[in-house]
Design a protein around this nucleic acid. Structure first.
Lengths: 195, 195
DNA sequence: CAGATTCTGTACAATACTGAACACATTCCG
DNA sequence: CGGAATGTGTTCAGTATTGTACAGAATCTG
């Protein structure tokens, strides 16, 4: 992609995220965004049809980062290690103002739904239905955990919890393990056990 | 000026200053600068004929800032107040790495000369040759003070002095006063004395 | 030494950005 | 109410930047 496009888009998104952290989405104007991004107004329109499109793509961009932070080991699993979960929560904590806005603004419930969908898909792959889960319905269990995780994330980014990102992720890791939400064992874990 | 020009130049100069703070001027390549500035190599050449031109314009840019910091009250005087001198020294302290490089690199003695020239011109205007200076040669006195100031600035930015910017500027202000290097009295200072 | 690599400076067509203008909608305010 | 101000979305010609290519200089390296 042309370097100019990359630079402009980054500047616009950065400006937009700054603004959304400062004021309500509806009050933000294209003029403000262009000014803050140090870009011509026409440039904004050349990339995004309007504010809502910008917000949408912005969420998408953040989502990529968020998902990446859940999947540090290639494409293997959501939160393959406790450290990975910690990292994700710290990332969310740092960008809380954006995520809070994305979650809070009515008209953007899409965000919560997308996050849940990703988590449900990921958890479904990793759930161990043996042991204490033998008598459970997998769909319900997965949904239960995904909704819980989404809710806790919402608590974190909206500052609705007194607990820190670290405390939360630590506790949540324990709860995931308790429910046998284990990441698929890596190939080398077997050979590791042999020695 | 076209916004693109401003943005590119700022990025290039910023990148260059970063690099000069990290390594020797001669080791810096145009490629590095372009890469760091996130700009095409051709763009660098469209604004600056080569590294040396870039350094030159860079010094010029910094010089404008530096002079501005000496002249906070319009165009009246160099260091019209002790606070102004303090501000200048703090500014120098913050950008020490750049100024150190500009002063240190042989091939750039121009910098020291320019600084001295500015100071000499400014001091010459402000020198009070009455009182203890009655028997002195003005040219020598002015040059003496300008060279001293330049030297002290060099000491500061090259970290060749254990004293802080604040300590130095405080002492230097006293020395300037002692030598009757007073800023031209503002019109209202007379009326101030009347009350 | 020769070959490989990197840097330099220049040229160019393709392209993204610019600022200005425009008609229209919305909001603000006396 | 009415008009002043501000925002929207579009168009457009002009311009700065882009990536690429090139030849020659400089530097590295076996």
């Amino acid at each position: 992609m042309d370097r100019r496009i990359r630079k402009s888009q980054e500047a616009i998104i950065e400006a937009f995220i700054q603004l959304i952290a400062e004021k309500n989405f509806e009050q933000i104007t294209i003029n403000e965004i262009a000014e803050r991004a140090n870009v011509s107004r026409g440039t904004v329109y050349s990339h995004y049809t309007d504010k809502y499109d910008l917000l949408d793509q912005c969420i998408r961009t953040h989502f990529v980062k968020l998902i990446d932070s859940c999947l540090p080991c290639g494409e293997q699993a959501l939160f393959p290690t406790e450290a990975a979960l910690h990292y994700t929560f710290r990332y969310l904590d740092e960008h809380a103002s954006f995520y809070a806005a994305a979650l809070a603004n009515q008209g953007v419930p899409a965000f919560r739904n997308r996050l849940q969908a990703v988590l449900i898909r990921g958890f479904d792959k990793q759930m161990d239905m043996g042991g204490i889960n033998k008598m459970m319905d997998k769909g319900i269990l997965v949904q239960f955990l995904a909704v819980a995780m989404t809710g806790m994330i919402e608590q974190l980014v909206t500052r609705a919890t007194p607990y820190s990102a670290t405390e939360l992720s630590g506790q949540l890791w324990a709860l995931m393990e308790r429910n046998q939400m284990v990441p698929p064992s890596a190939p080398l874990s077997i050979s590791t056990k042999l020695f």
